[in-house]
Design a protein around this nucleic acid. Structure first.
Length: 767
DNA sequence: CAGTGAGCGAGCTTCCGCTTGACTT
């Protein structure tokens, strides 16, 4: 017999709590939700007041039978799921599945994991709050209705296996709309004038002041004119302003801010951050990593304070508690922080160490004093022009939290340079060292990264800490968006320089539009997005979630009945579903690009069965249209007639080489030459399939054949020893086998090889 | 794995939010 059984959501939490509770208590975990709406069909009886059918998913059956067994053996069952909507629902499902009594089962919540907090929770049990449970049911049922009624419309009207949902469809919309802003963006340029001045008074040699003209110039002519004026001007210090200021540390990490900073500072993807954080959590090194709260427990505040005082001294410490600004935050957990703030280091993999270090610094910095800075700005007057130059400097008087950590931003601030302005007096004459006007181009709004998309979703109140990473995977898996790099394009910038009274003009090149790990919309994402905006504008509205959340809150406090709320939503929604099915045409994203310059046939692009395709001509009695797939990085929405026509130049024949034809084409893995039914890849960057010559093709074929010869180290008939990218390996019946570490490939006999293959097949079966 | 785009139709796909392993490369 177990005296007391406590059920929590997470197994790691169960372990730590059990230590505090003593031997009368057994603590186990439910591993999150144990029941969900039925997988098949809707799982909701719409005719019958939206009665849900819940079932225990197959993968949960083992946990549930274990829970049932333990609950039956226990005198008292305590349910300590998280203190939010989902946690309350988990409690209610547990009570129902474990056949407990709703009136007598003790519902408790821990706000932090300390002896005191846990014991006070045990002393103050309450009942399950059915209003909160109902608000969760409303949330769950609404999401199911939206997802499972709209998705089938997409299967019929766009393509099979697509999906739509309250969260994912808005995420896609953000990316599509950003891309269109970038298409529509018109780059402009202007000339920015910067100067380096020297202080001419004796004793202050080498002291320089970097400044920028208060005016920008529209074109080269104007800039040149101004530089000419500069040549003949005298300069002197105008006004001097010194402003004291402070900077404060950022709050401790939530899931969203951790994902952003881990991306910016460590280059982690959102999924990678969560996987590494999970490991740290399981090892007991950090608190729970899926949270929207910036709150720190009293214990954490004390420990952080002690650490700061002992490492940096009393004046670096400032205890702070941060309020969560976000609407809709549920704050069931603490912020993400080191479990033991006094431990600066951790064991584990390199990535675990890096992420722990980031969390430690952010947490500690949040409890440190403000930085005290002094901002100095001076103006520099010209003797022959009303234009002034402005110089900004900054001095850190006291570093405070900056000693440990400064938050990064999404913008690259290449231009911003902080430096110290040397002491100057009003009216002090200055001479220029150099003045230059350089062309600056305006830049379009930035594409989203995974992390900046999470930030935006969080601002809109869409999605939860536990779903940010999965949502980003989903929209990529559906093919709606893709994470890509772009090399960017070179462009020339003009620079006019004035040095020692001489004006010269030069050209520099810069790379514009270079992208790394950015989210790009794909054709199917744009088609689905437009279809949803046309037909389900309410659902993909940026405020939809916020509006339903308000109603869920009303349900949670008992002011609104969940069935009524759902009914009011569902009636018009379902009508829209039906009418969309009846009235709308299939959506293929078709675009007419123009007519073929020679034949006059129409040239169109659309989404075909195998992806985006260009088409010349129409299917009619005796004419068959010609087709060509769009290449990667081309979009239905932006491809031009010329680009589309270009696609039809491939595949093309290069002529016969030793009796066989060489064909050039572009396949799934890039450009290739087909020769004697073998494929030869063109070299990236050096060969272009449209222009590659006969001679070059022969060269590529010969090179590949040569290296293939070297590939075969030994040939035992059905088993071959080959040389691959990662060293020698064995091939048998199209299956690859690794050699055991330390094997000398040169000395392998046929028997050795057979043994290696047998062994590796055995271990495969055992695992 | 390298070039597909006709048409029919059975049976499948799909949501969001809680939690971790059990899988393969």
């Amino acid at each position: 017999m177990i005296e007391n059984l406590v059920i929590v959501e997470s197994p790691a939490k169960a372990k730590t709590i059990e230590k505090f509770l003593g031997k009368d208590f057994r603590v186990i975990s439910s591993f999150g939700h144990i029941r969900d709406l039925a997988k098949k069909n809707l799982g909701i009886d719409i005719e019958n007041n939206f009665t849900p059918t819940y079932e225990i998913p197959k993968e949960k059956s083992r946990v549930v039978s274990e829970l049932r067994k333990l609950a039956a053996e226990s005198k008292n069952v305590w349910i300590a799921s998280d203190e939010d909507r989902e946690g309350e629902a988990i409690a209610w499902h547990l009570i129902s599945v474990l056949n407990l009594d709703l009136a007598t089962t003790r519902r408790i919540v821990f706000h932090e994991i300390t002896n005191e907090a846990i014991n006070s929770a045990i002393q103050n049990p309450r009942q399950v709050d059915m209003n909160l449970v109902n608000s969760q049911q409303a949330r769950r049922i609404l999401d199911r209705l939206v997802g499972f009624e709209i998705s089938p419309v997409l299967w019929k009207k766009v393509q099979p296996s697509l999906s739509a949902g309250r969260v994912q469809s808005v995420a896609v919309r953000l990316i599509v709309e950003r891309e269109r802003e970038i298409f529509a963006f018109e780059t402009e340029s202007s000339f920015r004038v910067t100067a380096v001045f020297e202080i001419s008074s004796p004793g202050s040699e080498n002291a320089i002041i970097k400044a920028e003209a208060s005016k920008r110039f529209g074109d080269e002519k104007e800039a040149l004119k101004f530089i000419d004026i500069c040549k003949d001007s005298a300069y002197s210090v105008g006004s001097i302003t010194i402003k004291p200021g402070t900077r404060s540390p950022a709050p401790p990490f939530t899931t969203s801010t951790l994902q952003q900073e881990a991306y910016r500072k460590l280059g982690f993807s959102v999924a990678q951050t969560m996987a590494v954080a999970q490991k740290l959590y399981e090892a007991g090194r950090i608190t729970y990593m899926r949270t929207d709260s910036t709150n720190l427990s009293g214990l954490a505040l004390t420990k952080a304070r002690e650490t700061i005082v002992s490492e940096f001294g009393e004046k670096y410490s400032k205890t702070r508690q941060f309020k969560t600004k976000l609407k809709g935050a549920q704050e069931a957990h603490e912020a993400i922080r080191p479990a033991y703030p006094d431990k600066h280091d951790t064991t584990g993999t390199l990535n675990e160490k890096k992420l722990y270090d980031l969390i430690w610094k952010r947490t500690i910095a949040s409890q440190m004093a403000d930085a005290v800075i002094e901002k100095t700005s001076i103006t520099i007057d010209m003797s022959n022009s009303p234009v002034i130059f402005q110089a900004n400097g900054e001095v850190i008087k006291f570093d405070g939290f900056l000693k440990v950590y400064a938050e990064s931003t999404d913008q690259d601030n290449g231009d911003e340079e902080r430096y110290v302005i040397p002491p100057v007096k009003k009216g002090m004459p200055l001479i220029y060292n150099n003045i230059s006007a350089s062309q600056k181009f305006t830049i379009p709004p930035p594409r989203y990264t995974e992390a900046s998309l999470v930030k935006k979703l969080e601002e809109l109140g869409i999605g939860r800490p536990s779903t940010y990473a999965p949502t980003i995977s989903t929209i990529q898996n559906r093919g709606y968006v893709s994470r890509e790099d772009r090399p960017g394009e070179k462009r020339n910038i003009k620079i006019i320089t004035l040095v020692k009274g001489k004006v010269s003009t030069s050209l520099k090149t810069e790379i514009a539009g270079k992208e790394k790990s950015k989210l790009f919309p794909q054709d199917i994402g744009m088609i689905v997005n437009d279809f949803l905006i046309d037909n389900f504008s309410e659902i993909v509205d940026y405020h939809f979630t916020a509006e339903v959340e308000e109603q869920f809150d009303e349900i949670a406090v008992g002011n609104l009945k969940w069935t009524g709320m759902i009914d009011k939503f569902y009636k018009p929604f379902h009508k829209t579903v039906t009418s969309t099915l009846e009235k709308t045409e299939r959506k293929t994203g078709v675009r007419m690009l123009g007519n073929h310059p020679e034949t006059g046939e129409p040239v169109t692009v659309r989404m075909g069965r195998f992806g985006p395709v260009a088409q010349i001509g129409e299917s009619a009695n005796n004419t068959k249209p010609r087709y060509a797939s769009l290449s990667k990085n081309q979009l239905l929405e932006t491809i031009t007639l010329d680009e589309a026509l270009n696609l039809f130049r491939l595949p093309r024949s290069l002529g016969e080489h030793e009796g066989s034809e060489m064909i050039v084409g572009i396949g799934r893995f890039g450009p290739f030459i087909r020769y004697q039914s073998k494929f030869y890849s063109l070299k990236k960057g050096t060969d272009d399939p449209y222009t590659v010559t006969f001679d070059r093709a022969v060269e590529i074929i010969n090179e590949k054949n040569e290296s293939d010869k070297k590939k075969v180290l030994k040939d035992f008939g059905d088993i071959m020893l080959l040389n691959g990218r990662y060293g020698p390996y064995l091939v048998k019946e199209k299956q690859n086998f690794r050699l055991p570490k330390g094997t000398d490939a040169e000395k392998l006999t046929q028997e050795d090889c057979i043994k290696i293959i047998e062994n590796s097949e055995k271990t495969k079966k055992n695992s």
